[in-house]
Each structure stands twice: as C-alpha cells, then as structure tokens.
C-alpha cells in the first residue's frame, strides 16, 4: 500500500532521497516530463487538455526528524532537531539512523534517579542522546557519522474505525494523494511537484515555483488537528472525519478568496464533506509559491492529522478518500475549462 510505503520511508528535511525514489518509481510511467531539480524537488508534468493558465499541485516530501551532531566518548550520539519538534515527545522513542537505518533509542535518566524538581521540567535536548548499543566512540563511528539524519522508527498501523497511525503523515499523505492523482487522471495538463525542505523554512518550494511559474496552485498537506473534548470550537483547527480542510489564512498566505470559494462550491456540488482550517497558525509551501516572480493564486487542501510532527500521527481513511474525491472533482472542472475562469 502506497501510504504505508511512503510513511515508513525516511525523508528528514534535506535528505528526501528514499521518498523521492519511491515517488519517481511510482509516477514515472504516468507523466510526460519528469525532472529532479538542483535542490531535489521532483517536478512532473502531465500533458493533456489545458487552459491558458499553468496549474500546479504540490506536496512536500520531507518530514521532521533529527540529525547527528556529535558522538561522545562512551559512543552515545548527540543530536539536534530538524524542523519543529516538541522536545517532550523525544524521550524513550526508537529511531533509525542514516542510510543503513541503524536502530537506536533515545534514552534519559530513569525516573528513580531524578529529583522531584527535575521531573517537573521538560527534558532538554542537550540531556538526551541516542544509544545504538555500542560502548565506545570508535565502535559507534563504524555505524554512524556526524551529519547522519535520524528518523522516527514507527510502522504504519490501521486501527479503530478506519484510522491510520504512522509517522510523517505530514506530509506523506499529500504525496500519496498526488501520486494517486498523477496515476489515475488522464488527459489533463498539470504540474505535480514534490518539494523538499518544507519543514525547515519552505526552502524547496520557491525554486520549484520559480521554474514552473504557475498561475494557480493547490498545496496538499497533512494539517493540525486537535479535536479533543471541552475546547471552544474556535480553538479547534480541524476535526477528524469532517472531510478535507480548506485553508483560510496562515502565517505565510492569505488564500485567494475566489479560488477558495470555487473549491467549496465544487465540494458542495459533489456532496463531498469539507471543513475550514480555522487556525491562522503555521505556514506551508504556499507562502513561497504565491509570492514567486510576479505572484500567483494558491489554495491549500489538507487531511487533518492528530499528533502532527510526532512518530504517532493519526488520520482517518475517510478524510483521505474525501480529499481525493475533491481533488478529482476539481480536475474534472478543470478539464471542462471552468475551474480557472475568473481567477
């Protein structure tokens, strides 16, 4: 299964190769042009019916993770975070290091030996380390180098009522949707772009947009979901099982109103549930895309993911299916030549 394959691959920002290779092998027979640019973005083009406007759909390939900064005399590995990770989730998690995926665990002082005051504080990253079972610097150095990327070790699990647990749902869910679209949709012109380094400052999207120079873009994402009970509804960014989340604004973009309304209309017309992403926090590749060159119009459609940026993100298959339906409906409108009119 594609989403399983994608989420279990390692693709920490700046080291997306494994994910990129999977995506290329999946789509290469379904596109008319395919290139990997100088930063590692995958830029695919499908030729077919087109409007006068250049249409691009993007998803970022990278995930948050860790990177090795030092190996100490006892062979323990020091690291720092890549992308936004709540340091409190790190302790006692298994990880995989480097291209050969050396297994390790993130250890810390046992609770018995901590003072009460210590226990009340979040553990600082400087006091965490990765243990791969070696005892000396020399031994560790046989397996691990400074600069090796570290991904969470977390397998894809289906559970509950149509739910999925995996790491890196942000944004392999977007990658999976885009791969499936590229494979299924025929005879429509669009660029499918898989970007690098979104999590460390939207670094890949600008250069990719500079190359494609789109008029209209849809950015696919896995987004914040925190739908626990007893919270005011305006503080809940998205809900599980309420369908694709359409962004209003975030720190990087005020999403084009006409395009957003068109997408909502299409959802309504096709009986696809949808919701707004209510939070204006966070940002995504759209920030770079819509301000590149002379500027363009963007929308973001996301699958809600609980516990985002952790090894145990959770999403609903129904949301995935509804997001996919919505994207297909949008492309159908595009094929009719109506989607981009007046935008």
């Amino acid at each position: 299964m594609l989403l399983k394959k994608l989420t279990e691959a390692s693709g920490v920002s700046g080291n997306e190769k494994e994910v990129r290779d999977i995506i290329i092998s999946e789509i290469k027979d379904y596109v008319d042009d395919l290139k990997v640019d100088k930063l590692g973005n995958v830029i695919a083009y499908k030729n077919g019916k087109s409007s006068s406007k250049i249409f691009m759909i993007t998803a970022h390939m990278d995930e948050v993770g860790l990177i090795v900064t030092d190996i100490d005399d006892k062979g323990l590995i020091k690291f720092t975070t890549v992308g936004g990770i709540d340091k409190r989730i790190l302790v006692s998690k298994p990880v995989l290091i480097g291209d050969s995926k050396i297994p390790g665990v993130i250890g810390s002082k046992p609770i018995h030996l901590q003072k009460k005051s210590e226990r009340e504080k979040a553990i600082d990253i400087d006091s965490l380390y990765i243990d791969i079972g070696t005892d000396t610097k020399d031994e560790t150095s046989k397996y691990v180098k400074i600069g090796d990327y570290v991904a969470f070790d977390s397998i894809y699990v289906e559970f509950g009522d149509n739910m999925i647990k995996a790491k890196a749902l942000d944004n392999r869910v977007g990658c999976s949707l885009l791969v499936e679209l590229i494979k299924e949709v025929k005879d429509i012109s669009f660029y499918g772009v898989f970007t690098v380094m979104e999590e460390i400052g939207l670094r890949g999207a600008g250069p990719a947009a500079y190359y494609v120079d789109p008029d209209i873009s849809i950015v696919l994402e896995g987004t914040l979901c925190f739908d626990v009970p007893k919270i005011d509804s305006h503080l809940i960014p998205t809900y599980i099982n309420k369908g694709p989340a359409i962004s209003l604004m975030d720190r990087t973009t005020i999403f084009n109103k006409a395009l957003r309304e068109r997408i909502v209309d299409i959802a309504i017309k096709n009986n696809i549930p949808y919701q707004y992403r209510k939070s204006s926090m966070g940002g995504n590749d759209s920030g770079r895309i819509h301000t590149t060159k002379e500027g363009s119009v963007t929308a973001t459609i996301s699958v809600p993911c609980r516990n985002i940026h952790s090894p145990t993100s959770v999403m609903s298959k129904k949301d995935y299916e509804n997001t996919y339906k919505l994207l297909k409906a949008i492309l159908k409108e595009y094929e009719k030549g109506e989607f981009t009119d007046g935008i």
């Binding site: 819509h290 301000t291 590149t292 060159k293 002379e294 500027g295």
Partner: peptide
C-alpha cells in the same frame, strides 16, 4: 507580499 511580486514584474 504585493511589493515583492510587483517589483519583480
């Protein structure tokens, strides 16, 4: 944001 794209043009 508008200044950035209009200056480019």
């Amino acid at each position: 944001r508008g200044a950035k794209t209009s200056a480019y043009r």
